[in-house]
Design a protein around this nucleic acid. Structure first.
Length: 141
DNA sequence: CCTGAGCGA
């Protein structure tokens, strides 16, 4: 049947794609003109690029200059006890987090350039603040 | 003390 040829045609070799890439018709740029790496705005800030020697206090002091830091923590390995190179800073409000994020983004901390970004939403792993989703939080492992 | 681009108990 002719159908068999269609199946083989669907299997395009890597080399063929490379040749098609040179064709002006094959250029397929992303649908979006711009692709902002920014995450959803939230009072929680994810700070990366931290020095292995940066501690929670240093992070708190550094970000307190741009707003009221409610909570700050440098993620450390509980086995070795050393910093993992990133941490989290929680501001009182999202707008303060934005100022602090852009204020400390690219700044030097302990000899390393740090990068501030909105932290991703994280499922409850321990006692959470007031305002958990319905049906309670008995789903934690 | 430390290897690094990474999202925590």
């Amino acid at each position: 049947m002719a159908m068999r040829a269609a199946v083989m045609a669907a299997m395009a070799p890597r080399g063929l794609n490379r040749l098609l890439s040179t064709s002006p018709f094959n250029f397929k740029p992303p649908p979006s003109s711009n692709n902002p790496p920014e995450a959803d705005p939230s009072p929680n800030l994810f700070v990366s690029g931290l020095s292995k020697r940066t501690t929670t206090e240093g992070l708190h002091e550094a970000f307190s200059k741009f707003g009221q830091v409610v909570d700050a923590k440098v993620v450390t390995d509980r086995v070795s006890g050393y910093s993992k190179g990133f941490g989290f800073v929680k501001y009182a409000t999202t707008e303060e987090a934005t100022v602090g994020k852009q204020g400390m983004h690219g700044e030097f901390l302990d000899g390393w350039v740090i990068f501030a970004e909105y932290a991703k939403p994280r499922p409850p792993v321990t006692q959470q603040q007031f305002g958990n989703p319905p049906f309670g939080s008995y789903g934690q492992r």
